[in-house]
Design a protein around this nucleic acid. Structure first.
Length: 513
RNA sequence: GAUCCACUAGCUCAGUCGGUAGAGCACUUGACUUUUAAUCAAGGGGUCCGGAGUUCGAUCCUCCGGUGGAUCACCA
């Protein structure tokens, strides 16, 4: 990569080269002059990894191995020296004796720096202090570390730097790898379970002409050749349902959604969702799949269904509790919306419960949702399906036959937060068209998050979509729950960060508002 | 977007009731043939987040700005 075209920030351009960097550059240049430039190395022999050697000491003791990794600590003792070498599994000590190497090689070995990447060949033995070690009988420097690593004992603690320079965080705080290994395991477990249930994984467009399927403000981008503004998707929902119309019957997608909204410990502008759709079932079927996926993923990474999250004990053993939204409100507030039929009565009870301000201008269904969100949600610690949502807040869910003011929809609550959202999917094209129309009215009234009508989606429904259950689960939040992480940035390798210096990098992006 | 807190050496932190700074690790040099936060001796290293104000003098006080964290608001 050439320097031209790479945006260089001022800090980098004017940064004085520190002493420690200069030392390392000088060492590299000395090596290069001797024809030992490590950057010409292309491969290395790695017969064993660190933990594997420690775990199999009995059979490996005295055996010759070749290990490769990064030098994390050096302890010189004059004519012997000790180095801690880190690889993907952990660390192994390298013991080097002056007479085991050529004179110049031993000198070069002593000159290695913390952070350098080496290959070492030697036999396994245990030191007097009981440390499993590789007796250095030959090594190669594979890559030179030109900057000093953060401190060996305290590591890197500044969260800002850890998120911005995740590679450094991973080097000096390798225990965080566990979270990302678990993340990978959670996702692969879900894939595996869905495959067993005969779902197929599909990919639908991230670039949308209409960002539908959720209530959110989208990111806008532009296609040059088509001279067309496009939106990054806020949900794959409407595409996946088109595939159900097309006859796939069971589809799912695990992918990124983008929502142009505030950031918090629970929100990143891009986040990963699982969405799945299954023909010929309803939201009850989705409850079963939800419990199954969440509990199976939990078992896969924690070997138990009783986990601790943020000091709370949570039991993910299926079946999860089931409670209708109106029941939940009755339980936590003693207000029974089954006995309340008009908007006026609903407003009156909102006033009695201190929700007058938020309830202003709302209709009964919206007030029910408000009651739930304000007075019930945070009390749901153990996993609970809250079902039967008011139609006003559920533009894509099928009406409940027995009470058409409600929809067959549920959300999964754990520790007061939402982890999933599911419906018996609305498949009546005329009803869907009306719901889009209602959303359009809300939008005209200034609700920027209200859905835009998607005429092609309605047309798809006109070709008949079978009765279908659909489910969305926020993967990042699930990973947070299952790894006891209280901030979403801890489960994202590269969370979205503001640029330093208060200026946008010169990346050619257009000036936004 | 609002409020509170933080920002000092590469890293982790102390400190200056306002007189331009210290420790440990890391680094350099030396000693040391089984150490493991190795040890011992000596040395180098700082735009005290940026800008402005007050002051004889600001890293410290005040204001503005930056970045992060926590809480709240919106959302998944």
């Amino acid at each position: 990569m050439s320097k031209e075209g790479v945006p260089q920030n001022d800090q980098q351009a004017t940064e004085d080269i520190q002493e420690q960097v200069l030392n390392r550059i000088n060492k590299l240049e000395d090596l290069s002059e001797q024809g030992k430039n490590p950057f010409w190395e292309t491969t290395a022999k790695q017969t064993h990894h660190s933990q594997e050697i420690i775990d199999n000491l009995a059979e490996l003791e005295g055996q010759k191995v070749s290990v490769a990794g990064r030098i994390m600590a050096k302890r010189g003792m004059g004519k012997v020296s000790f180095v801690d070498l880190a690889d993907r599994q952990g660390r192994i000590q390298i013991f080097t004796k002056i007479d085991a190497l050529e004179d110049s090689d031993y000198k070069d070995w002593q000159n290695l720096d913390i952070g350098d990447i080496v290959e070492v060949e030697g036999t396994i033995f245990t030191t007097q202090r009981g440390e499993v070690s590789v007796r250095n009988q030959g090594y190669r420097l594979l890559s030179k570390c030109l900057r000093p690593l953060p401190e060996k004992f305290h590591g890197l603690t500044d969260t800002d730097t850890r998120y911005r320079k995740r590679y450094l965080d991973l080097i000096v705080n390798p225990e965080i790898k566990e979270v990302f290994e678990k993340r990978s395991k959670i996702i692969s477990t879900i894939r595996h379970e869905l495959e067993k249930l005969d779902f197929i994984e599909v990919e639908t467009p991230l670039l949308n002409q209409i960002a539908g399927g959720a209530a959110a403000r989208p990111f806008i981008t532009h296609h040059n050749t088509l001279d067309l503004d496009l939106f990054l998707r806020i949900s794959p929902e409407l595409y996946l349902k088109r595939l159900i119309v097309g006859g796939f019957e069971r589809v799912y997608e695990i992918g990124r959604n983008f929502r142009n909204e505030g950031m918090s410990t629970k929100h990143n502008p891009e986040f990963t969702m699982l969405e799945l759709y299954q023909a010929y079932t309803d939201y009850h079927g989705m409850m079963e799949i939800s419990e199954h996926l969440i509990s199976t993923a939990c078992l896969a990474v924690n070997d138990t269904l009783k986990i601790v999250y943020d000091e709370l004990e949570i039991d993910l053993t299926p079946p999860f509790a089931r409670m209708s939204m109106i029941e939940a409100i009755k339980k936590f507030t003693s207000v029974d919306f089954d006995q309340i039929d008009t908007d006026e009565e609903a407003l009156a009870v909102a006033k009695e419960n201190g929700l007058l301000e938020q309830a202003a201008g709302m209709v009964r269904g919206e007030i029910i949702n408000l009651f739930f969100e304000e007075l019930c949600e945070d009390k749901l610690v153990q996993p609970t399906f809250i079902y039967d949502y008011p139609i006003e807040v559920s533009p894509l869910a099928k009406k409940k036959k027995s009470d058409q003011r409600l929809t067959e929809r549920f959300e999964i609550f754990i520790n007061g937060s939402e982890y999933g959202n599911a419906y018996s999917e609305l498949n009546d094209p005329r009803d869907q068209a009306e719901r889009f129309q209602d959303q359009l009215e809300k939008r005209k009234e200034g609700d920027e998050e209200a859905s835009l009508p998607d005429q092609d989606f309605v047309e798809a429904l006109e070709y008949a979509m079978p009765p279908t259950g659909g489910l969305g689960i926020g993967i990042d939040r699930l990973v947070m729950l299952l790894t006891n992480s209280t901030t979403i940035r801890d489960v994202l390798l590269f969370p979205t960060m503001k640029p330093l210096g208060g200026q946008s990098p010169e990346n050619g992006a257009s000036e936004g508002e």
